Amino acid sequence: QVALSRTQVCGILREELFQGDAFHQSDTHIFIIMGASGDLAKKKIYPTIWWLFRDGLLPENTFIVGYARSRLTVADIRKQSEPFFKATPEEKLKLEDFFARNSYVAGQYDDAASYQRLNSHMNALHLGSQANRLFYLALPPTVYEAVTKNIHESCMSQIGWNRIIVEKPFGRDLQSSDRLSNHISSLFREDQIYRIDHYLGKEMVQNLMVLRFANRIFGPIWNRDNIACVILTFKEPFGTEGRGGYFDEFGIIRDVMQNHLLQMLCLVAMEKPASTNSDDVRDEKVKVLKCISEVQANNVVLGQYVGNPDGEGEATKGYLDDPTVPRGSTTATFAAVVLYVENERWDGVPFILRCGKALNERKAEVRLQFHDVAGDIFHQQCKRNELVIRVQPNEAVYTKMMTKKPGMFFNPEESELDLTYGNRYKNVKLPDAYERLILDVFCGSQMHFVRSDELREAWRIFTPLLHQIELEKPKPIPYIYGSRGPTEADELMKRVGFQYEGTYKWVNPHKL
C-alpha cells in the first residue's frame, strides 16, 4: 500500500502544474464570482478556492472578487462561507491571508454602469489591468444573457486571457439551449467557454479513460460480442427537503440524466481518441451522441416518491408533501431510460440510465454486464461477469466473477477481482471535483468540460421526450421513500436483457 498525506498529494500536483506551459504561476489572475451571495458560491466555490489557495495550487498573485446585487462586505462573505471551509486552528494565518486577497463589488446584473465599476475595481488591483480574468457564473440561467453581454462589453482583460465558467442547466430543451449557446458564442470563442459538469471532475469518471485505453485486457472485450448491457446509475437517499420548488422546474431527467449520466455513457462508449488533447476527446464523445436516436417512450419509466409510513423524519414525507412543490405536480423524481448506440461496436446493446431521489442508498456507478459463458459445464450455477466502476461513495473498480467454492467439488461461487483505489492508495485525500475543474480552467484544459456541439446532441436525444411529458403530463409511478424505485423499472431492465441475480454482496474494501 502507498500512504500519501494531503501535503504529498498537493506537492505532486504542484510539480505537475508548474512543469506545464499552460499554468502561468507568476502571472496575476483575477477570479470573479458572479452571484457571490448565492448558495453555490457559499457552499462550493469559495470553499474550493480556499482549498486550492491553502494547498498552494493557485497562481501566487490571485485575487478573488465577488459580485452580486446584495450590498455585502468581505466580512459578510466570510461569515456565510467559512463554515464550509473546514479550516483547522493551525490554518488561521493562512485564512487571514486568503481573505486579504478577497474583495466585493455590489451591482445589478443588467446595468452597464455596475460592470464599469467592477472593471475599475479590477484595474485598481495590483497589475489588475493586465491580469488573466476568470469569470464564474454562479447564477440562474435567466440572467446569463445580460451578464455575459455586460462582461464582454465592460470587463474583459485587454492583455491577459479571459475565460468564463457556465453552470448547468444549459437551457431547458434543445431550442433554449441553442439560443443560449448562440448568444454566448457570439461574445466569446469556444476556447474561452467552460460549461461545467462537476461529474466530469470526479476521480473515477476520469479513471474510465485510463482503464479503457491503457489496459490491453479490456480492449478486445469492450464491444457487443461480449457486453450484454451497460447500466449507469445515480441514486440519492434523500428527497427534495424543502427545495422542491427549484427541482420541480427541471425534474430528474434535466437535473441528472441528460448531463451526468449521458457524459458517463460517452466515456464508456467512445472510441479511442487520437490523443488526450481536449478536442480529440470531445470529438469522440460527440460521435457517440450522434449514434444515439431520440428516446422512445416505451423505453422510459418515470416515478415519484411517496412517504414511507414506517419511516422516520423526512422519510415519512412524499414529494408532494414538500411545501415548495406545486400542488398535484407530476414532475418525476425517478427515471429509467434505455438508449442504444447504433454503431458497429455497440449495435443492440442497451445502455440503461437510472437516477432518482429518496432511494435506498447513495450511489453513482457504471456497471457493464457481460454475456453468459458459452457451453456451460457447471449446471447453470454460473452468474454473469460484471465490471463495476463505483464513482461514489467509496470509489472502487471491481470485476464480479466466478471462482471455485472451497471444498471437494467443482462448485462455482461469485467473488470479485478488486482493482480499488483504496487498497493501493491508503487514506489518500484526493482533490474534489470542483478543485480539479477550476484548476483545469486556470490551465486552459477543456477536456472535462462540455463543448457546444456535445451539448446540442445531448438535448436532441431528450427534448422530444421532455416535450411529450410536458404536454401529456403522465402521472409518475409512486414508489416508497427509501425503496429501490418503481418495480416497473426493474421490469424494463429485465425486458431489454439485464439479469439481476441478487445473490452477490459487494464487500467494501475500504472497511476491511
Rank of each mutant, 00 (worst) to 15 (best):
F498N: 14
L430E: 15
L289M: 03
R451D: 02
E361Q: 13
V450R: 02
L439I: 04
Q304R: 04
D283N: 07
R456F: 04
E454V: 06
M402D: 06
V341G: 02
N259V: 12
K357A: 08
V268W: 01
G502E: 15
G356F: 00
D453Y: 00
G482M: 03
N308P: 03
F351E: 02
C291L: 09
A335W: 01
T324D: 14
E395S: 14
T399R: 02
K363T: 14
K357F: 07
A274D: 09
D347W: 11
E454G: 12
K405P: 15
R384H: 15
E488R: 06
P478F: 05
V256C: 10
V373A: 15
P273N: 00
P350G: 00
Y434F: 15
S278Y: 05
V286E: 08
W459R: 12
Q369T: 09
T420L: 14
Y504Q: 15
T324H: 12
P474I: 14
I477F: 14
I477T: 08
E361A: 12
F378S: 02
H260C: 15
V341Q: 00
D280R: 09
Q468K: 06
N411H: 05
T316W: 05
V337Q: 05
A396S: 14
V341W: 00
F498M: 11
E271D: 11
E472F: 07
K505Y: 03
N427A: 12
E312V: 07
P509H: 07
Y319D: 00
S278G: 13
F334G: 02
Q304M: 03
Q381K: 13
V256P: 08
T331E: 12
P476M: 08
A374S: 14
A332C: 14
V388R: 13
P486C: 05
L320Q: 11
V295Y: 04
H260S: 15
K405L: 13
P323R: 11
L261G: 03
Y421T: 15
V338N: 07
R456W: 04
I292L: 08
L466D: 04
A269S: 11
G307F: 03
T324V: 07
N423R: 05
E312C: 09
F498C: 15
E361V: 12
A374R: 11
E491H: 10
E395Y: 14
D283I: 03
W459L: 13
A332L: 01
K290N: 07
I389R: 03
C382Y: 08
Y340A: 06
N394P: 06
K383Y: 14
E314Y: 12
E271G: 06
V366T: 02
I480Y: 13
C443E: 10
H371G: 09
C266T: 14
V397D: 05
D310K: 12
K400M: 15
F498I: 15
G313M: 08
R390L: 08
E361F: 04
I477A: 15
R345D: 06
V337E: 01
L492R: 01
E342M: 05
Y434V: 12
K287V: 03
K426A: 08
G307C: 05
Q263I: 03
A433K: 15
V338H: 06
A489N: 02
K317T: 12
A332G: 08
I389G: 02
Q381S: 11
Y481H: 06
Q296K: 11
R367Y: 05
W346R: 00
A489R: 01
H467N: 11
E361T: 15
M401F: 11
L455N: 04
S452I: 04
V428I: 05
G502C: 13
V337K: 00
S278C: 13
F378I: 02
H467V: 08
P476V: 12
Y398L: 13
I469F: 09
G328M: 07
T324S: 15
I377K: 03
N394M: 09
M493D: 07
E435I: 07
E435L: 07
V388N: 06
T333H: 01
L261I: 10
K511L: 14
L265Y: 00
G311N: 09
V256N: 08
T463R: 08
Y481W: 08
D347I: 05
P464K: 09
Y421A: 13
L261S: 02
Y421P: 14
Y479E: 00
M270P: 02
S452H: 04
T487Q: 10
Q369V: 15
T487Y: 10
V281A: 08
F370E: 00
D347E: 09
D347T: 13
K404P: 15
T487C: 11
D490K: 13
G356C: 01
E457N: 03
E271R: 03
Y500R: 14
C382F: 05
E472R: 12
P406N: 05
V281F: 15
E414R: 09
E314H: 14
P474S: 13
L353I: 09
D418W: 04
L430P: 14
E413D: 13
E365H: 02
